[in-house]
């Protein structure tokens, strides 16, 4: 067969394969969602997952938020001082974080901290036949294992993004006001005047919620579909992080385009 035909064939095969997987993933999501009542009726299972995905991610989220905020403070001051508008530093830091960096960076961190852990855990449970054993006991693993993890992640993500933005603003304050000496009153009052609840904060929360669904969906699906071997699980974990990162950035563009105030 000539190389061109071979190339076309392999592209075609990959496309079909990708569509198959997407179809499986969608059916899996529907199955997971259909067990939502079970996940909330037995709230302790979901709360446990909020602890594992959310609380245990707090350190990395808070530390990264602080540093991102401090960098924003430095960079923002450096730019604003050229226009003599340093009192707008608070606005700049707050808007960048709440609208963009908070949801996106927190989501990327969440995917690599909690998403990979979810995939690895479910994948290992599958590889060691724990899911089969549960199934044999007439307990649906999607209800008992997957649904609580899914909701744990979905609930944690917006809260983590909010924590990220809050500590980021604190970081900007530390650098801008405490270190450089921007006026504290102007820093806060300008921020309060210019940050709009509906357009900025709610949109940021919507973004982080969408990212939360995407990441946890990818994580539980990859874990559940992982080949039951050490290699299969490790590959699935990698795929969770890579796919999540790409999906977060693509979704961010789409969501921002819809929320963009300049249109309409």
């Amino acid at each position: 067969m000539n190389p061109l035909a071979q190339l076309l064939r392999s592209i075609g095969a990959r496309t079909i394969d990708g569509i198959w997987r997407l179809g499986f993933a969608t059916r899996f999501l529907i199955a997971t969602l259909s067990h939502t009542p079970a996940a909330f009726r037995r709230l302790h299972l979901t709360i446990r997952e909020v602890y594992f995905s959310g609380v245990l991610s707090l350190t990395i989220i808070v530390v990264s938020g602080l540093f991102v905020g401090m960098v924003l403070g430095l960079q923002g001051y450096d730019t604003l001082v050229r226009f003599g508008a340093t009192e707008a530093l608070g606005v700049l830091v707050a808007l960048s974080l709440v609208r963009e960096l908070g949801p996106v960076v927190a989501a990327l961190l969440f995917a690599s901290r909690a998403g990979s852990a979810i995939t690895a855990e479910i994948g290992l449970m599958k590889a060691t036949e724990q899911l089969d054993a549960m199934d044999m006991m007439a307990i649906d693993p999607v209800a008992r294992v997957v649904a609580p993890r899914f909701w744990g992640g979905v609930l944690s993500m917006p809260l983590l993004a909010a924590m990220f933005s809050a500590t980021g603003i604190l970081g900007g304050y530390l650098v801008g006001v405490v270190l450089i000496g921007v006026d504290s009153g102007q820093f806060w009052s300008q921020m309060q005047n210019s940050v709009n609840f509906r357009d900025d904060i709610v949109n940021g929360i919507i973004k982080s919620a969408v990212f939360g669904v995407a990441i946890t969906w990818i994580a539980v699906f990859e874990g559940y579909e992982a080949p039951p071997t050490a290699e299969g699980v490790s590959r699935a974990t990698t795929r969770t992080v890579v796919t999540s990162a790409l999906v977060i950035l693509a979704l961010d563009f789409i969501l921002t385009a819809f929320m963009f105030r300049g249109i309409g």
């Binding site: 449970m125 060691t128 036949e129 724990q130 089969d132 054993a133 044999m136 006991m137």
Partner: peptide, 16 residues
């Protein structure tokens, strides 16, 4: 039907 039966797995399959 499975609620009336049970299986011991070859490798135990304990919940870790």
């Amino acid at each position: 039907l499975r609620r009336r039966m049970s299986m011991l797995f070859q490798f135990g399959a304990l919940f870790t």
